[in-house]
Design a protein around this nucleic acid. Structure first.
Lengths: 172, 172
DNA sequence: CGGTATTTGATATAGTTCATAACGATTATT
DNA sequence: AATAATCGTTATGAACTATATCAAATACCG
């Protein structure tokens, strides 16, 4: 638990390396997936895990999880909002958002400021450091993560995929 | 915690209803998602949660989670396999697969049989009841769940989506 | 105005999922 | 025969998700 043999270890920051399904010609002599491969939910989950894995790898130097990145992005795009608004937009429950913010704030990436007109709420703001980290993260995500996705899928497919996923997230 | 007002409650069997992001013209006056909507990982996760939600709804009468359904499917397609092989194929760690099997076995959907040639392994078999439940589940999934997906996306898009997700799960 | 209800951030808590280490029993290796 | 590897299992911990509840502050309403 203390050794860190390879540089790849640094990649699995919060969650350790995910279990790989099947096996690349290894030990199970390839079972039949059957209608499993036609199940959209199954493929969605598998793909999502892989994509998150790659995200963590690409953005590892900044030690940001997808969730943390999304918070920083949202704070940057929507200044002057409180915890409830940000959490709701991301589908995070307010109680769970507290610890998330604690972590970001302890790293001086954002700060809570008491609102002057409503002293219950905390207005969330990115710190200078938060803005700098976000800028670097955006570049890593665009140039390494999304670039690889576009390379694998092709630009047109990538766009089509995004559109379909958005439709699913909306109309479903 | 004891009342169950609506029939929809039965839907959220294992996990309670997931938090909805943003809000349908409700209280947060629509924050800007910004580049978040262009993040494939974000859209993937959102879509996956929705699809799983719908899966649970559709297959609620049989009380099967997506993971349980995938196990039954795999057992049916690959008879004579042991726990390690099934778990590996699904990307489930062996220790975590034990409780899953306990649950399925306690409902008489499958059974562990000691292998004759290797008395360490448990050969997994579907019971008659397991086969019957699987057959009913398949119909529900096809006629309600996947049917709705195809309706929302269109058949061609649905197929294209599956193909892209499979490619991501593989080459990533 | 004053009392009640609601909202906000927070705490405590519990359930689910995912991961690692280690063990006994069995089998493979040498 | 001795050692190593494998199988199912247990124990355990971390991360994520969900609910109930609280104090402080605000909104509502008679």
């Amino acid at each position: 638990m203390t050794v860190s043999k390879t540089a790849a270890d640094a990649v699995r920051s919060p969650r350790a390396q995910r279990r790989e399904p099947v096996d690349p010609a290894g030990d199970d002599s390839m079972l039949q997936l059957g209608e499993l491969s036609g199940l959209l939910g199954y493929s969605l989950k598998r793909a999502q895990l892989k994509v998150f894995e790659d995200f963590l790898r690409c953005v590892a130097p900044l030690q940001l999880t997808p969730a943390q990145f999304s918070v920083l992005l949202l704070l940057d795009k929507n200044p002057g909002r409180n915890q409830t608004e940000i959490a709701n937009t991301l589908g995070i429950l307010r109680p769970n958002f507290v610890a998330m913010l604690d972590a970001l704030e302890s790293r001086d990436l954002c700060a809570r400021m008491r609102s002057t007109n409503d002293r219950r709420s905390h207005i969330l703001v990115l710190t200078d450091r938060g803005r700098a980290v976000l800028a670097r993260a955006k570049k890593l995500v665009a140039n390494k993560h999304e670039a690889r996705l576009i390379e694998v899928l092709g630009p047109a497919n990538h766009a089509a995929l995004l559109e379909m996923l958005a439709k699913l997230a909306q109309e479903f």
